[in-house]
Design a protein around this nucleic acid. Structure first.
Length: 679
DNA sequence: GCCCCCGTAAACAATA
DNA sequence: TTATTGTTTACGGGGG
């Protein structure tokens, strides 16, 4: 009789809820002013620079002392020779024969780096061609400065030499004073070099050319500190830009830029994130290749072709039609050394961007965790868009929760059914995040008549584990839950369970949202209550639901395009949405064969028709015809007797689906709610 | 400012 | 009797 449900009513007064909500909102407003950046701060840079300079300074002083002694000895020898004495010291001459170039000068001299080093630098700091140019200019400017310093140093050395000679003539003075003077001069020079290098590094950082990550300090900092040979940069620049005259077809002098022998991303930095994102990265790369192929063969839109312009890096050739572009692509960007080099650079760019994206996502997750999750409740670190590669479900999360139908359930294929375009619109944007943190206002699924399924599908793991309010209205969520059920019908309690199972947010304050669910079920005509022998189930009248929010979406062309593109890519559509479309064509309560391509296209077509009908702006709440073939309203289902087997209870329902709501866990949810509500 | 939508709260009745 | 389910009303906020 009494279906399981939370015992939330007793201790969950509205006042306390409001207080809790307001406090929560206040906490959310108190956002951290300073994000904990993963980049090395300027202070760290300076510290490293200072340490490095200290070591160099010690070497310089040692060398300088030796050199000074050597010079003085030479001078003494010369004097002795002039005086006719013959005091040889060949040993000293042999020991210090080639110290005319001080170490400090050697340090300032730009070192010629190997191609491998250059590649490592590129891998760790992938630069765009523009950035490379800027870097080149910066390096050349630094070279000039360093040359000036060298000249200055040489002049000083000469001056010192002259001073020594004069001092020799004037009589021997204390060597300590000379050494101190020279040390001071060298320290000044060192300071100047340090300042220049720090300025250079800071400039690079400011311009975003240099991002030093933890654990990355060794090579890039060292290399940049020592200066990259502009010739090498120029060489690389030539290799990766359009130098068509170099298109010889042979790999002459093309070192390490061969795609045929793909070097594994030997980036320790990348591997640091492999535990969480490596899968995602490799997968996305793989997906990138497949989509490219698909585009090339099946679409007249091409990722390398946009607005009549070839988007090959550095090309920007203009074409009137797609065919000429394809010809150009095959001719000019064929498989040769230049293309492979450019491709490799682009791969590095993508890898770097993905790395940055992963970092930003981690930061976002940390922020959200900080803002929404109680510190006393250690949660798994859920991330939107299936970044969680291996979900360790908390005790409040359904451990198995085989998702219904096409939901990507296995973390091993996190983005398998997705397309990049579908990802683009359904990623948790700051806007949606804003919605999710506050009261449930203006869920975009309603506002723009968008199917919520792709979002829920893509962020299922996220919503399941993060106490983030899904940016959908109760009505949309209820509909989604009902449509995800195998029979497209749920009892009230099953709807509750679906909420708690799918959304961590609804595992607390049960009285509030359950009341809202009931309220919505009763209020909206799109939810049809079907009497049953053993109770009642709720179904969705899709027509009524579509009529429910006839707000036009013509306002933002980009938005409309987004919606249409999202509809145009079948894999992004969830089976629930397809099923909902199928409901308009096939009788209710029949288990539709969901997922066939024809049904997908049909569903898309119907969906677009619906959106087109919405554009005409149906009168709100009126029962006017939506402007397309009037499908029979679903109200008759109220009288339609149901097969008792189909809805005798939750357990019978779950046997039909591969997603089994574990009601023990629902108990847990309710219990947790009780704890939460007591707080 | 008005209207609509949505969320929330609450009262109330029916029912198991 | 109690908990659940379902209906309805009221109110406030956001947004067009």
């Amino acid at each position: 009789m009494m279906q399981e449900s939370g015992t939330e009513a007793a201790s969950n007064g509205p006042a306390s809820q409001n207080r809790a909500a307001s406090v929560e909102d206040g906490a959310r407003d108190a956002r951290p002013k300073s994000a904990t950046s993963v980049d090395v701060t300027a202070a760290d840079l300076i510290h490293l620079q200072q340490q490095q300079a200290l070591q160099v300074a010690r070497q310089i002083l040692l060398q300088q002392q030796q050199q000074q002694q050597h010079q003085q000895q030479q001078q003494q020898q010369q004097l002795q020779l002039q005086q006719g004495t013959d005091l040889k010291s060949p040993k000293d001459n042999e020991n210090q024969p080639s110290l005319q170039v001080p170490v400090s000068v050697a340090m300032m001299t730009p070192q010629v780096i190997t191609p491998q080093q250059m590649q490592q630098i590129l891998q760790q700091q992938v630069l765009s061609p523009q950035q490379l140019q800027v870097l080149l200019q910066q390096q050349q400017a630094l070279m000039l400065q360093q040359q000036q310093i060298q000249e200055f140093y040489k002049k000083q050395q000469e001056q010192l030499h002259l001073q020594l000679l004069q001092q020799q003539h004037a009589g021997k003075q204390s060597k300590e004073q000379q050494q101190q003077a020279q040390q001071l001069a060298f320290q000044q020079q060192l300071m100047q070099v340090q300042q220049l290098q720090q300025q250079h590094l800071l400039n690079l950082q400011r311009q975003g050319l240099l991002t030093i990550q933890p654990g990355q300090t060794a090579l890039p900092l060292h290399s940049l500190t020592q200066g990259i040979n502009p010739a090498e940069l120029q060489q690389l620049w030539k290799e990766v830009t359009n130098l068509k005259e170099e298109n010889s077809g042979n790999s002459n002098g093309r070192r390490g830029l061969d795609l045929s022998s793909p070097q594994p991303p030997k980036k320790p930095l990348l591997n640091q994130h492999a535990s969480t994102n490596g899968q995602y990265m490799s997968h996305s790369l793989k997906r990138e290749g497949s989509t490219l192929d698909d585009y090339q063969h099946s679409h007249h839109s091409h990722p390398l072709y946009g607005h009549g312009v070839c988007k090959w890096p550095g090309c920007e050739a203009v074409f009137e039609d797609f065919q000429s572009f394809l010809k150009h692509l095959n001719n000019e960007h064929a498989l040769d050394d230049r293309s492979t080099a450019q491709c490799r650079v682009q791969m590095q760019v993508v890898q770097q961007l993905e790395l940055q994206l992963a970092k930003d996502k981690e930061r976002l997750q940390a922020m959200m965790t900080h803002l929404h999750v109680k510190s006393t409740e250690p949660k798994p670190t859920p991330q939107p868009l299936n970044l969680v590669s291996s979900v360790t479900l908390s005790k409040t999360a359904p451990p198995e929760a085989s998702p219904p139908l096409s939901l990507p359930q296995t973390p091993t294929t996190p983005t398998a059914p997705l397309t990049p375009l579908s990802q683009a619109h359904s990623v948790i944007t700051p806007n949606s995040l804003h919605h999710s943190v506050g009261p449930m206002r203006r869920r975009y699924s309603d506002k723009y008549n968008m199917p919520i399924s792709p979002d829920i599908v893509q962020n299922k793991e996220f919503y399941m584990n993060a106490e983030v309010r899904p940016p959908f209205t109760y009505a949309s969520l209820i509909r989604q839950g009902i449509l995800e059920s195998p029979e497209k019908q749920l009892t009230l309690n099953e709807i509750y369970n679906w909420f708690t199972r799918m959304f961590a947010y609804f595992r607390r304050n049960a009285a509030t949202w359950k009341n809202a669910v009931r309220h919505n079920l009763s209020l909206h005509k799109c939810f049809v209550r079907v009497e049953n022998v053993k109770g009642a189930v709720w179904t969705v009248d899709e027509l009524e639901f579509q009529k429910r929010r006839p707000q036009k979406i013509t306002g933002s062309p980009a938005l409309v395009k987004n919606i249409q593109t999202s509809l145009g890519y079948g894999p992004a559509l969830s089976a629930a949405f397809q099923a909902s479309m199928a409901e308009n064509n096939i009788p209710l309560y029949t288990t539709a064969s969901i997922g066939s391509p024809t049904l997908n296209s049909l569903a898309n077509a119907i969906r677009e028709e619906m959106i087109g009908a919405m554009d005409h702006g149906n009168s709100n709440g009126s029962d006017s015809s939506p402007g397309r073939s009037p499908l029979p309203a679903m109200h008759h289902i109220k009288e339609e007797p149901l097969d008792p087997e189909d809805h005798e209870g939750p357990l019978s329902l779950v046997t039909m689906a591969n997603h089994s709501p574990d009601f023990d866990h629902h108990r847990d949810y309710d219990d947790d709610q009780g704890h939460d509500d007591m707080l």
